[in-house]
């Protein structure tokens, strides 16, 4: 069964780009673009990996991350944070909130793919 990745992002072109990259690699890609309902969506879809944007309408990516980490079901869920805010303090903020991996936009497609793969590799069985 293919691994599932949930992309939480509000910029349609970026969603399209990530979807293309990951599905070509065999991932099942689900997308969500609203911050307010992001946590429920994660709990409902139970993805293997979450790619999370920071500046989302309704709720910030940091808050979503913190809430997920507070929930037992998602406390260890691999979460890759992608943000256009690339300052050091943003990275620190994300790490304190318990991010699994942090990347700034614009990104290289290969790097995103590698990062997602790396996030599931230690726990999951070989693909």
């Amino acid at each position: 069964m293919p691994k599932q990745v949930l992309v939480i992002e509000d910029e349609p072109n970026i969603i399209e780009a990530i979807s293309f990259i990951l599905s070509r690699d065999g991932w099942t890609v689900k997308t969500h673009s609203n911050g307010l309902t992001a946590v429920e969506t994660v709990l409902m879809r139970k993805p293997d990996v979450v790619i999370l944007d920071v500046m989302l309408p309704g709720k910030s990516g940091y808050d979503i991350l913190r809430e997920l980490r507070d929930l037992p079901q998602t406390a260890t869920l691999p979460i890759l944070m992608l943000t256009a805010r690339g300052q050091t303090k943003d990275r620190e903020l994300a790490e304190r909130a318990g991010v699994s991996h942090f990347m700034t936009k614009p990104f290289s497609n290969a790097e995103v793919l590698a990062a997602v793969q790396a996030l599931v590799a230690p726990v999951g069985d070989a693909k």
């Binding site: 910029e11 072109n13 970026i14 780009a17 990530i18 293309f20 990259i21 070509r24 500046m55 256009a84 805010r85 690339g86 300052q87 700034t104 936009k105 614009p106 990104f107 290289s108 497609n109 290969a110």
Partner: peptide, 25 residues
């Protein structure tokens, strides 16, 4: 500045991602 950074990076992200897709795929 944070806003500008965000506003500039967002279209650039799409541009880069799709130009890589066009090149590599």
């Amino acid at each position: 500045l944070t806003q500008i950074s965000h506003e500039l990076r967002t279209p650039m992200t799409s541009i880069r991602a799709f130009s890589e897709i066009l090149r590599d795929s």
